[in-house]
Amino acid sequence: MDLTLHVWRQAGAATAGRFVRYELGDVSPDMSFLEVLDLLNQQLIGRREEPVAFDHDCREGICGACGMVINGRPHGPRAATTACQLHMRHFPEGAEIWVEPWRARAFPVVKDLVVDRSAFDRIIQAGGFITARAGSAPEANAIPVPKGDADRAMDAAACIGCGACVAACPNASAMLFVAAKVSHLGLLPQGQPERAQRVLRMVEVMEAEGFGACSNHGECMAACPKEISIDFIARLNRDYLTSVFRHQPSEEGPDPAEG
């Protein structure tokens, strides 16, 4: 099939970007969307032009590296599908496709379609964990977990951290990402001791990183390649409110493991 691509080209964070139009022939319907970019890049290299930069690694929809807005939708038109798993048979012959990076203040562009998502890492560093020193764990079956809770925790834990939720949100909010982690850990008995601290710290960093507020548009869930439910955001809100009342951050002592 033949395609027309309009790809966002931007040399670096400090320079302005623009769409550049490329005509591409010989595209097989069996190709993934990233293989189309590979093809384009091989042609660009052949013409001694600079290839399009884009993040990718596993190409199986699990590492969360790939992420681009395709025709106005994060990861493109197919539900529950990352860009690397999107196949060209879902596009009509002669399709015209616009490709651009995630757009959010907290995700500055690095180059072309590549953005800096390290804000997500910093949110996890603030509290997205259960403290469990290697060597101190009790026997695994000592704490039974009801299957329903475990399954629900797994639903939330399936998040791949790609950032599509932020890109889809008109406010560029990271609530679905934060909610998924808070819910995953908060649904398990092991996650209880740090539950209040976790949600307060994660939300605090989320706000400091420049993500917007959540106004319940629900675009995040529609864009999420793992179909993480917006119900987790309600859970986050509940957890947050309870924690604010019960547990002022200023009351916290130093990390006991410190030193």
Binding site: A137, P138, A140, N141, P144, V145, A150, M154, H184
Partner: peptide, 22 residues
């Protein structure tokens, strides 16, 4: 065996049976 203990303590949501065991 220690690995499973460690991972469960960290909150890895391993599959469980209806009784709540792994």
């Amino acid at each position: 065996v220690n690995i499973i203990d460690q991972c469960v303590a960290q909150g890895v949501p391993f599959a469980r049976e209806y009784g709540g065991l792994l």
